[in-house]
Write a protein that binds this DNA or RNA. Sequence first.
DNA 1: GTCGCTGCAAATTATTTGCAGCGTA
DNA 2: TACGCTGCAAATAATTTGCAGCGAC
Lengths: 144, 144
Amino acid sequence: MEETEKRVQAFFEACRVHGIRATPQRVEIYRELRNTEEHPDAETIYRRVRERMPVISLDTVYRTLRLFEEKEVISRVGALNERARFDGNMKPHHHFICKVCGYVGDVYCGAWNDLKPPKEVERLGRVHSVHVELRGVCKKCRSR
Amino acid sequence: MEETEKRVQAFFEACRVHGIRATPQRVEIYRELRNTEEHPDAETIYRRVRERMPVISLDTVYRTLRLFEEKEVISRVGALNERARFDGNMKPHHHFICKVCGYVGDVYCGAWNDLKPPKEVERLGRVHSVHVELRGVCKKCRSR
DNA sequence: GTCGCTGCAAATTATTTGCAGCGTA
DNA sequence: TACGCTGCAAATAATTTGCAGCGAC
């Protein structure tokens, strides 16, 4: 069995566990996402899936991605894109981000200020800065 | 001199270096951003600055933030929020993000898969995952 | 006077929602 | 039959843009 197809099997299993239906649309969206390393956006996934499955709508893609993310079957790159948040502190530091409310807290950790990227990264481009993101649930949201 | 005000002095200096005007609006936006650790969004900054400076518009705030970011006087939390990007790979890995085109590449680095957050982070909340983000310029954008 | 910066209003873009129909358990 | 899932169209929310006026060099 091909690698991607093994994953699709695991996907069916995950759907069973979460009690959601593995509809054709969802399977294709999942397959598309596993088939690429491009970290595509919703629109791109929509365009590609539609080539193989002409009857699918963009909002199904959005809805499905949101569902997958909620079930932790896929993840989102970078912060939860609610709205842009800014930071006036340009000293090296890191962030704790609450998955629930989006709260962002500063984390200082000297040891993390000079993490050395592995050499293979040169293949991708030149690194200007290294930044650690901790994701979790903040105190306030935990106590609710 | 108070800490924030020292920073505002540095801000004037930075404006001189970059050849942009340190208008009252810009000074207030910068001051607001340095005065808080909340990593506010544009709307929040707008609301707060307006209390002290009634004549300012939301788009000036947006424009100013964009300008500051470009000049590297401030930074943005998380990825450049163009649009949401998704990742079907749930194995622990890290990301290289191109500042110019938004390209996202996967980075595998065993040593980074179990970075231990400093104890003070418990003060903020419970950490579920640790993720390193490398920001830089990708090969394609460098050669242009 | 020139040119950068601003406010206003309108435009654009990404994402979400309400609703009716359809298909599967 | 019931209910989850879908497509469509309309709504919402964040951010950007065009334009005219104003003020600093």
